Amino acid sequence: MLRTRVIPVLLLQEAGLVKTVKFKNPEYIGDPINAVRIFNEKEVDELIFLDINASKEHRDPPYDLINRLATECFMPLCYGGGIRDIDTIRNILKSGVEKVAINSFALENPEFIQEAASVFGSSTIVVSIDVKKNLLGQYRLHSSTGNMNVKNDVAAFAGQMEALGAGELLLNSVDNDGTMQGYDIKLIKQITSQVNIPVIACGGAGKIGDFVQASHEGGASAVAAGSTFVFHGKHKAVLITYPAQKELRKVGL
């Protein structure tokens, strides 16, 4: 049985690292290159960098920064943000990045996932799915670009992305983002029961027990978090950290 990957998700804004709560109020937390160097020392399984403004601003990814991150990074690296065509993916991969995460454009143009997977292989293509509850508590796809003409059935969309060739799904709960109160296990179960490709659970982790629950109960193939890896203590002092590998093995991760 494959072990569960534990993955820091780091948000980029204007070449700096930020952290949000429920996708709002990004707080500057430091330099991304420095964070990569610390995570190298801590033998992190994988890193995901997401540029939170590239798609909203309709601009290209920050290629120079991506190249610097990939050069420093000793572990597999995934980048997302501003990806709208094949050439953009090609340029990102040339920097040494192993995978790309596609979010907004997958909602707007699902067939692009099929095209990207056919060119670069499914293992390279991660579809990032942001989910937010409506006033009735129903799960709905969330688009950071403000596009409201997107499908509402989250599980059906996940299945469609798998059918079109996505190799992995990054499932993020907007409502739990940055709260450190635990994952939305119901949401994770809903998606992992729908697809056969790996699902990375994200949004809400505050302790190792949350990772265990998302993996063992939710069925996630990997668990991801932001706040728990960059904040320490009740006052949320910035401190880049990561559990020791032996600590993760002890709890079955």
Rank of each mutant, 00 (worst) to 15 (best):
4 T>R: 13
4 T>Y: 12
7 I>H: 07
7 I>V: 14
9 V>S: 10
10 L>C: 10
10 L>Y: 07
13 Q>T: 03
14 E>N: 13
14 E>Q: 11
18 V>A: 04
19 K>E: 07
21 V>A: 12
21 V>H: 12
27 E>T: 13
28 Y>Q: 06
32 P>L: 04
32 P>M: 04
34 N>G: 09
35 A>Q: 06
36 V>N: 13
36 V>S: 13
38 I>Y: 06
42 K>D: 08
47 L>A: 03
47 L>C: 08
47 L>W: 09
49 F>Y: 12
51 D>R: 06
53 N>D: 14
59 R>S: 04
60 D>W: 01
63 Y>H: 10
65 L>K: 07
66 I>P: 04
67 N>C: 03
67 N>T: 07
68 R>M: 08
69 L>K: 04
69 L>A: 04
69 L>E: 06
72 E>D: 14
74 F>P: 00
75 M>A: 11
76 P>R: 02
77 L>W: 10
77 L>S: 08
78 C>P: 03
91 N>G: 01
92 I>D: 06
93 L>I: 11
94 K>L: 11
95 S>H: 01
96 G>V: 01
98 E>N: 13
99 K>D: 06
100 V>W: 03
101 A>R: 03
101 A>N: 12
104 S>I: 00
105 F>E: 15
106 A>E: 12
107 L>Q: 13
108 E>A: 14
109 N>L: 00
110 P>S: 01
112 F>Q: 04
115 E>C: 05
117 A>M: 00
119 V>C: 05
119 V>E: 15
122 S>Y: 08
122 S>P: 11
123 S>L: 08
124 T>K: 10
125 I>M: 00
125 I>T: 06
128 S>I: 01
130 D>Y: 07
132 K>N: 00
132 K>L: 00
133 K>M: 05
135 L>P: 00
138 Q>M: 04
139 Y>G: 05
144 S>E: 14
145 T>P: 10
149 N>I: 01
151 K>F: 05
155 A>W: 03
159 G>A: 00
160 Q>V: 00
160 Q>G: 02
162 E>K: 10
163 A>W: 03
163 A>N: 14
169 L>P: 13
170 L>D: 05
170 L>E: 01
173 S>M: 09
175 D>I: 09
176 N>I: 00
177 D>R: 09
178 G>A: 07
180 M>D: 05
181 Q>Y: 02
181 Q>L: 02
184 D>C: 01
185 I>R: 06
186 K>L: 09
189 K>I: 04
189 K>N: 10
192 T>H: 02
194 Q>P: 05
194 Q>C: 12
197 I>T: 11
199 V>E: 04
204 G>A: 11
206 G>T: 13
207 K>E: 15
208 I>P: 13
211 F>D: 06
214 A>Y: 06
216 H>A: 11
217 E>S: 09
218 G>V: 05
218 G>A: 02
220 A>W: 09
221 S>N: 14
221 S>P: 10
221 S>E: 14
222 A>V: 09
222 A>W: 08
224 A>Y: 05
224 A>D: 09
226 G>L: 04
227 S>D: 08
228 T>G: 02
230 V>K: 03
233 G>H: 14
234 K>V: 15
235 H>P: 03
235 H>S: 14
236 K>P: 03
236 K>T: 11
241 T>S: 15
242 Y>P: 11
243 P>H: 02
244 A>K: 14
245 Q>H: 11
246 K>D: 14
247 E>L: 12
250 K>A: 14
250 K>M: 13
250 K>Y: 14
252 G>R: 06
